[in-house]
Design a protein around this nucleic acid. Sequence first.
RNA 1: GCGUCCGUAGCUCAGGGGAUAGAGCAGGGGAUUUCUAAUCCCUUGGUCGCAGGUUCAAAUCCUGCCGGGCGCACCA
Length: 569
Amino acid sequence: MQETLQSLLQQRLGDALLKLHVDCSLALVTPAADIRFGDYQTNAAMVIAKQERKNPREVAAQLIEQLQVDDIAATPEIAGPGFINFRLTTSFLEKQIATLLNDPRCGVALVDKPQTIVIDFSSPNVAKPMHVGHIKSTVLGDALARIARFLGHHVITDNHLGDWGTQFGKVIYGVKNIAKSKIETVHQLVELYREVNEKEEHDPEMKAAVREELVKLQQGDAENVAIWKEVVAISWKEFENIYQQLNISFDECLGESSYNEALEPLVKRLEQEGIAEESQGALVVFFKNHPTLAEKPFLIRKADGGFLYATTDIATLEYRKERWHPDAIWYVCGMPQQLHFEQLFATAKKIGISCELRHISFGSILGEDRKMMKTRSGENVELNALLEEALDRAFKLVSEKNPGFSDAEKKEIAQIVGLGALKYADLMQHRTTDTIFSWEKMLSFQGNTAPYLQNAYVRIQSILRKAKEAGEVVAFDSIKLQEDAERTLALQLLQFAEVVPAILSDARPNILCLALYELANSFHRFYEQCPILKAEESVKQSRLALAQLIGCVLRCGLELLGIKVPERM
RNA sequence: GCGUCCGUAGCUCAGGGGAUAGAGCAGGGGAUUUCUAAUCCCUUGGUCGCAGGUUCAAAUCCUGCCGGGCGCACCA
């Protein structure tokens, strides 16, 4: 297991505590809260002082006497109420940074105990277009999958498509009775659905006919099944196009329809086992002694005998358990569905499914008016339109800056920058905070945005290209950290190994975004202050190597978020 | 009504027991014959919704209140 700076210091602290015969798991080494306090700090003395009713600064002094860090840091200092501050030596940082060169993992260790994790995300509904509401689940789920895989976990991504349900009665009725020509797009399906929906309101006969079509589908009627399959295929074609643009793929796309056969026996079993009971004509699961769910029954069969998405979700859970024996299942799904997942997980407990179940929820996307984002006519904003606008805006941006690029190159760059900006905007905030959608902000070159990070990368590549053209053969074997800017960069580069593993504990890619932003910011400062190509030979070598390393970490970090980097922009 | 999440600078947000609460934008002032200024530097701006409590230490934990979002039986 590779050490990070933090774990190394933590170990040294542990050794010192051992010598003092103190057992204290709360004594933590953390990155310094402020550069004035050095590189890392520990509150160990204060925690121990509390336990043993001693003076914290005295405890700190004793601790420092036992701390063996002279090979890596200056003598630790006591500060404030009893913090111990560590300042790593430059030579140690230089030594450590050398291990990063040529490391494709940028210093990030694999986890000790790989887990099998099923990640359920995206999950759009068939016969409807994907809209803004799907983007967070899709982008966040993909990023988490990439990160978990990178750390060595066995990840199964599963797109739980909404490809079954009452809406198909209407769609099939529409296809059979209303459609004038062959249906080829999701928009036509939506139109059809809308028309049927409106007409059946004041037409009981039609309502009955719609219902009949649904029943026939559920009973396996050949014609209706064929229409259903066609509808799924039309939808999938459009989804696939979006996923392709977003560079997102799935191991499995087991939609709700995959579990049709399992529902009946499942419900019977739950009833027999006394887990579910009848109530007001429906079959429900009660959680009688649960603090908050006591009065919230979980409906698994309607009074009319139909099943619900709760039913499908239980069946899906059992299927996943059986097929993959996962250690964890993550549901990347919006906040409004919290109650549903609490109920689902409580049910899982009742039926003896013990793997870790997490609802990874996230905030909504709001318009600049702070209300749910809608089009002027009050409809959901379609994802297709959103992607198109991202590409458009990015294309204009590139064209302004680099009119000389060919259209093909501009398009390629627009794709990377525009979609990167869109994804990054969904990942850079704490996931539960609502996002206020703003093209201007996400495409800005200032602040914590994808273009800012991509631009840092592009500048690095430009320098490396020039170096190559000038015939520089860079021996990336030694980095000398002379300037403050260089030292800061080295520290941040080494801390990448600490940040990435920390993301999953609370599913928060935003901490990676922040770290990358700070790295890019430090690079830009370094870029202003420290000439690279014009520096004298030995310094040039070191700075080129440092720049290359920054580029690698930026690229690696952005890739973990599902974002690409351009070579020019 | 019950549940749940949230209230931090003019705006958008970090920070979720530790030091003097941080960024970006906006406002003010500077830097460019460039290694891509799509950048950088300096600066103004905050009783962390309010009131109690726990603690050596609270924006952070607990309780109450105020204000908002979302969810609560046959949609997903």
